[in-house]
Design a protein around this nucleic acid. Structure first.
Lengths: 261, 261
DNA sequence: TTGTCGCATTGATCTGGATCAACGGAGGCG
DNA sequence: CGCCTCCGTTGATCCAGATCAATGCGACAA
């Protein structure tokens, strides 16, 4: 089975390019210093470079389905991937959002435990499972980095458990926006603060699935924060933060946790 | 700081024994084949054996507090440890239950991200952080096993996110009981089925914290399942399962996820 | 232009689980 | 013994967020 080569969901435009597109050399890679390969020296990187390949996915496109055997794993280079679990009656919970440099796929277990869906145009840097696992077996550096990333993911998942189990709808939205604000600030090498503007890479439905809410509640809470002056809506998918401290306050917690860092 | 030697919580009786008690040799250890050391050969095991030590905790006793620096990490030998996060206003979410053979403590990060509390009499097999991390650096087998265990924990955490975000109170209780039933069955080397009896190692409050509910709701739902004939209460802390399929059904999902395996 | 489709907002109503409150039983201890 | 404390159960009420329903609003195709 592996990755669906042409299983487009809905009617989205195809933007899948074959391997051999743009930045093909690991040395030039935008996620080189944060991805699973970030500890790898020249030799190991050469090995990875030789067997890696890229694949692109359109928004809404399924990358893998839960229960399916996956022959590939690798890093998010661009875009956002949502990992979700679905119950037989259709209730869905997103259990992780994967951003550039995050690792997608479960080493040592070929059956995917959850769906992976591109929520924005996504580019993945992939390895055949068997090859990756062989390199992993021989490479302590790669394994060390993977362990580190997995531990960080576990911490993030547990932070999210607190959010899902105990936070109010308003706190959920607040926490989510703080995480996006931090990420946006980090990408432009600054501290998060007033005046920050960032994109909402998800639909209201995807946000609801991530926060354990309904679309209506998401919409109402965002409107509520706007009316309270905590955020401004440039448009439905773009948020400005005139008062970052107020937003932090809405998120609850003091230090506050959230995606890796 | 490290582990609190004598910070008893409440008025529980002390049952802490010093190092050097009962089964001290790794070769005789009850969790030898499932713990973090299960892949270790004789040499490595000897190294671990030389530096390990045991510590016991009474029910309710705090093992580490969130935000505290921990100088020790290791395996649960006996009993159950709850990992929890608490918000400033007191809302609490348990993010993991650690059973015998589970690994407690975060390698490569000395500050504990959550509280660890003994919920039943607990015995830990511990290593000084610095020593453990040095052995880890030199030992691919140990690291490999730790990666495997961490990936399993991550899967379990994500299953729990679905429970917290989307399941009803009844489904939450059902899922929790199924997990305990499976664990009890596995310990007696049989398939879970009708007639199974097992202990509830947690108070109603600890269950509520784990499931994202209140004590009252936990109590009502358990009563509900009893009245529906799905379970029987031998006493408040002991459950019999006359109809395992009905219990599975209450848990929702088909395959159903739950603690490691 | 008009129709349609997907996404988002807003309103009205309902309800599962929280909250507030009382009570019962099992130890432990003076 | 009687008292107290911890734990669990049960009842009455409340409310945050789900559900049901309608409307708005681009983007895109015919």
């Amino acid at each position: 089975m592996g990755l669906p080569e042409n299983s487009l969901v809905g009617l989205q435009k195809m933007n899948v390019r074959g391997p051999g597109a743009a930045q093909d050399r690991c040395a030039d890679c935008t996620i080189r210093h944060r991805a699973v390969c970030s500890y790898s020296g020249p030799d190991e990187l050469a090995k990875l470079d030789a067997v890696k390949f890229y694949r692109n996915f359109a928004p809404g496109q399924e990358i893998v389905a839960a229960g399916e055997e996956t022959d590939f794993l690798g890093s998010v280079v661009d875009g956002v991937v949502a990992l979700s679990k679905t119950m037989p009656d259709g209730r869905r919970q997103t259990v992780g959002l994967m951003f550039p440099s995050d690792f997608v796929g479960r080493p040592m277990r070929p059956i995917a435990p959850y769906d992976a869906v591109a929520v924005s145009p996504v580019r993945l840097c992939l390895f055949a499972r068997s090859r990756f696992e062989r390199i992993l077996r021989e490479s302590p550096t790669l394994e060390k980095r993977l362990l580190e990333m997995t531990l960080d993911e576990l911490d993030a998942a547990r932070d999210w458990m607190l959010l899902l189990g105990r936070k109010t709808a308003q706190e959920k939205i607040g926490t989510f926006l703080v995480i996006l604000a931090r990420r946006a600030a980090a990408l432009s090498f600054q501290e998060p603060g007033d005046g920050l503007v960032f994109d909402l890479p998800l639909t209201r439905e995807a946000i609801a699935d991530y926060l354990g809410l309904t679309i209506e509640t998401v919409s109402r809470q965002i409107t509520g924060l706007r009316k309270a002056g905590v955020i401004e809506l440039v448009d439905a998918r773009r948020i400005a933060v005139p008062n970052y401290l107020a937003l932090l306050d809405v998120a609850g917690e003091d230090a506050d946790g959230g995606l890796i860092d």
